[in-house]
Simulated scan of single mutants.
Amino acid sequence: MSEQDQAAGLRKWANLQRQQQQTEGAVDVAAAEPVSEHTSPLLSPTVAAAEEPTTVAPPKPKIPLIVVGLPGSGAAQVSKVKARLGQWSTLGRSWAGDPDDWDIRIVMAETSDLAQLRDQYNRWALWISSDADTFAAMFRTLRLLHERGGPRRLLALHEPHLPRQGLLDNLREAADYYLNMELLVLAR
């Protein structure tokens, strides 16, 4: 896949994320019921409430992101993912948004219900570390996802200064060629 095709695919994915966020945040004003002039005095607001209007926005729903490739599923792992999303946000990647807007869920590739999770969640990521055995471990994880009905498209979450040439490109190409999976690698 050429770099232009990959960039176009990534822009399309980011635009889709923005559209989904806007759709999730939209309020259906037409569905609100009109207030009748003949409401019961028990339901009318008190004088104090009328003087101090309080607008409490409903909590913004968190965006689920399923992450595979991390050893364990503790709070430290979730913090690593949120830190990386925060770095992308700082770099101007609007799709990353606020790291606290994400509901990070760590899943092991060995999980027996991957197909059900794939049907339930559409945002998946592969955490890629930079140690010497990373390629073999990550390809094994991708192969397990492939064999167990996992997602076919994942975002590559990697350490900030990991160069694209080498590990990331090799992993992306191997996933595409051998497993027919798309690994989205973001350039800095």
Results as ranks from 00 to 15, higher is better:
M181L: 08
V35F: 13
V56D: 11
F139V: 09
A137G: 02
H158K: 10
T90G: 15
G72D: 09
F139N: 07
D28G: 03
A137V: 03
A137C: 01
M108R: 12
Q165I: 10
R105P: 02
Y178P: 01
V81W: 03
L144I: 02
G25Y: 13
M108P: 05
V78F: 07
L114E: 01
R148G: 02
P64I: 01
S130A: 10
E24A: 11
P163D: 07
T39N: 13
G72Y: 13
P99N: 07
Q4H: 08
K12W: 12
S40N: 10
K82Q: 15
W95L: 04
T90S: 15
E52S: 04
N180E: 13
F135A: 01
I128N: 00
R123S: 04
V27D: 15
P160H: 08
I128T: 00
E147M: 07
M108E: 13
E182P: 05
Y177F: 10
L43H: 09
K12H: 14
D28R: 09
L70M: 15
T141L: 00
D119L: 04
A8T: 09
W124G: 01
V107Q: 07
I106R: 00
P59F: 02
A175H: 04
Q22D: 15
A136Y: 05
S112R: 05
D5A: 06
A96P: 04
G25K: 15
A50M: 13
Q17C: 10
D28I: 12
W102E: 08
R84L: 12
A175N: 03
M108N: 11
V68K: 06
V107P: 02
D131C: 04
G9Y: 11
A7N: 10
E37H: 07
E3P: 01
A132M: 09
L162V: 11
D101K: 06
V107R: 03
H38N: 14
L145Q: 06
L91K: 13
P99M: 12
L114H: 00
A7G: 08
R188D: 12
E159C: 03
W102I: 00
A137N: 06
W127D: 05
T39I: 15
L10N: 04
D5G: 05
V81Q: 04
D98S: 08
V185M: 02
G150V: 05
R153Y: 03
G149N: 00
L145F: 00
E173K: 11
A125S: 00
E37P: 05
S2R: 10
L186I: 08
A75W: 07
A187F: 09
Q17M: 10
L85A: 04
Y121T: 06
A48F: 11
P163Q: 05
Q116P: 06
V185Q: 08
P61Y: 08
L184C: 04
G150W: 08
G149L: 06
H158W: 11
L154V: 06
L65Q: 10
